Amino acid sequence: MQRVNMIMAESPGLITICLLGYLLSAECTVFLDHENANKILNRPKRYNSGKLEEFVQGNLERECMEEKCSFEEAREVFENTERTTEFWKQYVDGDQCESNPCLNGGSCKDDINSYECWCPFGFEGKNCELDVTCNIKNGRCEQFCKNSADNKVVCSCTEGYRLAENQKSCEPAVPFPCGRVSVSQTSKLTRAETVFPDVDYVNSTEAETILDNITQSTQSFNDFTRVVGGEDAKPGQFPWQVVLNGKVDAFCGGSIVNEKWIVTAAHCVETGVKITVVAGEHNIEETEHTEQKRNVIRIIPHHNYNAAINKYNHDIALLELDEPLVLNSYVTPICIADKEYTNIFLKFGSGYVSGWGRVFHKGRSALVLQYLRVPLVDRATCLRSTKFTIYNNMFCAGFHEGGRDSCQGDSGGPHVTEVEGTSFLTGIISWGEECAMKGKYGIYTKVSRYVNWIKEKTKLT
């Protein structure tokens, strides 16, 4: 034993070699072989497995989906700052455009905790909710729209109204504003409101030439003092309507412009014939205590009207009353817009006519005020429907199939267009061939041609 100890002390290297040989010859039971080890760690190889990531292109799944990435790591994937920024906006807080917040056709661009709407022409605001041009839906104005110097929408209202708090709607500024039905039992019968379409306001006024200088022999019209197929109006439903009495009662109609003036057809009036105007009328054979009678003290036909040349060209006249009318729910003026808007309103496509005229061709006159909704007829169809001249200051309205029309005794009465609950004068009943005849239409004086003249002559002093 002493000898062994001496050998170990003198030859430590020998001992180490012996131990190493023993270990190498022993069977290893701690580690699995290569094949079995792979069965336990069965993990798919990654895209760049075996390579240094710093030297390969980034992978979106590896960089940002398996674990949260930084902007720089995302930049490695896209290799483009702009594309990385677009991805980053949604990656950080989701897609803010998912709810489609942009209105009126706006395009949404996502941002971090926010979004941006790219608005089409005519709109602005956070969600493109603000109209900035009158060309689109009248700028959301209830009545009139004008573009300011910086191309912003400025709404306005006709006389007797003021802008509401929203700067879009119009509200009454006087007790009985024009064009409004205020009798409670008839307010439910107000005709369907007309909503502004998209309009090209630059070209809204037709490029028409008034044929002022045409000389033409007097034409022989049949029954051209021209509501057939209409309905009984309720008291106060058309408070701007008046009836004219002269040699015979209810020979023509008219509309209240203001307390002192009536507008009617020029062919209705004769110099030297006494005319009485009755406002607030409903049943011409009954006294309903809503009527107001006034005498006409002055007749002003349009300066281009000449019955000797043509009885229905420039067929418009103004009547001055001896005493002002007292405005109330049964006696209310009709609204008159400017030339541009009167023309736009007419193009809405349908209007209402009213009167006490004959209820059928050569038949009896109506006792109760009649009204009828009539569609506008395109000019080409209008011209083809008659052998008589249709001037540019006239328009056609009615039904091709016949059966409904204005008729004798309705002449001078109103053709009105309702705009968001307020009625505007767009025409004056003038003439036609018979009444409600198939293929024939009622012919009306186009008020847009005469609004400046009306307003100039009827100013209240």
Rank of each mutant, 00 (worst) to 15 (best):
R3L: 13
V4S: 13
V4T: 13
N5D: 10
S11G: 12
P12S: 14
T16C: 10
I17G: 02
Y22N: 07
Y22S: 14
L23Y: 12
L23H: 05
L24V: 11
S25Y: 13
C28H: 04
H34V: 14
N36Y: 05
N36P: 14
A37K: 00
N38M: 09
K39E: 11
I40V: 12
N42M: 10
N42Q: 11
P44R: 10
R46T: 01
R46A: 03
Y47L: 04
S49V: 06
G50M: 07
K51I: 10
K51F: 06
E54K: 01
E54M: 01
E54R: 01
F55M: 14
N59H: 05
L60V: 09
R62L: 00
M65Y: 11
E66W: 03
E66G: 03
C69R: 00
S70N: 12
E72G: 06
E76F: 00
E76C: 01
E79G: 15
E79M: 09
N80P: 03
N80L: 04
E82M: 05
R83P: 06
T85L: 12
T85G: 09
E86Q: 12
K89Q: 11
Q90D: 12
Q96Y: 12
C97P: 03
E98I: 11
E98Y: 13
P101Q: 05
C102G: 02
L103W: 05
L103D: 12
N104D: 03
N104A: 04
G105Y: 06
G106V: 03
D110T: 12
D110H: 12
D110G: 12
S114D: 14
E116C: 07
W118H: 14
C119M: 02
E124M: 12
C128P: 03
E129F: 03
L130R: 11
L130E: 14
D131F: 12
C134R: 03
N135K: 12
K137E: 11
N138S: 06
N138Y: 07
R140T: 06
E142Q: 14
E142S: 13
E142A: 08
E142D: 12
F144M: 06
N147S: 09
A149N: 13
A149D: 14
N151V: 09
N151R: 10
V153M: 10
V154F: 12
S156D: 11
C157G: 00
E159K: 07
L163D: 01
L163V: 11
A164D: 07
E165P: 12
N166S: 05
N166A: 03
N166F: 02
K168T: 06
P172H: 05
P172W: 04
P172L: 04
A173Q: 09
F176V: 08
G179D: 01
V181N: 07
V181D: 06
S182M: 11
V183G: 11
V183N: 11
S184P: 10
S184Q: 08
Q185R: 10
T186I: 15
T186F: 12
L189S: 15
T190L: 07
E193Y: 15
T194N: 07
V195F: 09
P197I: 07
P197F: 10
D198I: 11
V199C: 07
V199D: 14
D200R: 10
D200S: 11
N203R: 08
N203V: 07
N203E: 08
N203A: 09
S204G: 10
E208F: 08
I210G: 14
I210L: 14
L211G: 13
L211F: 14
D212R: 11
Q216I: 06
S217T: 11
T218A: 07
F221W: 14
N222C: 05
T225R: 08
V227R: 10
G229A: 13
G229Q: 15
A233S: 09
K234Y: 15
Q237Y: 09
F238A: 05
P239V: 02
V242K: 00
V243G: 04
N245I: 12
N245Q: 09
K247L: 07
D249R: 09
F251L: 09
C252A: 02
V257Q: 00
N258K: 03
K260A: 04
T264E: 01
T264K: 01
T264L: 03
T264G: 02
A265K: 01
C268F: 01
V269R: 02
V269C: 09
E270T: 11
G272I: 07
G272W: 06
K274E: 13
K274Q: 10
I275A: 04
V277D: 00
V277L: 04
G280P: 02
E281L: 14
I284D: 06
E285D: 13
E285N: 09
E286D: 11
T287N: 13
E288V: 06
T290E: 06
R294F: 01
R294H: 02
N295D: 10
I299Q: 08
H302S: 03
H303M: 08
H303R: 08
N304G: 10
Y305G: 02
A308V: 10
K311Q: 06
Y312E: 03
N313E: 09
H314Q: 03
H314E: 04
D315L: 00
A317H: 00
L319C: 07
E320G: 03
L321I: 07
E323Y: 07
E323T: 13
P324T: 04
V326Q: 14
V326R: 09
S329T: 12
Y330A: 07
V331N: 01
I336P: 00
A337N: 00
D338F: 03
D338N: 12
K339C: 09
Y341N: 13
T342N: 03
N343T: 09
K347Q: 14
F348C: 07
F348P: 01
S350H: 15
W356Y: 15
W356Q: 04
W356C: 04
G357I: 08
R358M: 07
V359I: 15
H361Y: 11
K362E: 13
S365E: 15
L367D: 12
L367W: 13
L369K: 15
L369H: 14
L369T: 14
Y371K: 12
L372Q: 14
R373N: 11
L376P: 04
L376Y: 06
C382E: 02
C382M: 03
R384N: 15
R384G: 10
S385K: 13
S385V: 13
F388T: 12
F388I: 15
I390Q: 08
N393D: 09
F395S: 02
A397Q: 01
F399A: 08
H400S: 14
G402L: 12
G402V: 14
R404P: 15
D410H: 15
S411F: 15
G412R: 04
H415E: 00
E418G: 05
V419G: 01
E420D: 15
E420A: 13
G421K: 09
F424I: 01
F424V: 00
T426I: 01
G427H: 00
S430Y: 03
S430M: 10
S430Q: 06
E433S: 14
E434M: 12
E434P: 15
C435W: 03
A436T: 14
K438P: 13
G439Y: 06
G439T: 08
K440E: 12
K440G: 14
Y444F: 14
Y444H: 04
T445V: 10
K446N: 13
V447H: 00
R449W: 12
W453L: 00
K455W: 05
K455S: 06
K455M: 07
T458I: 06
L460Q: 13
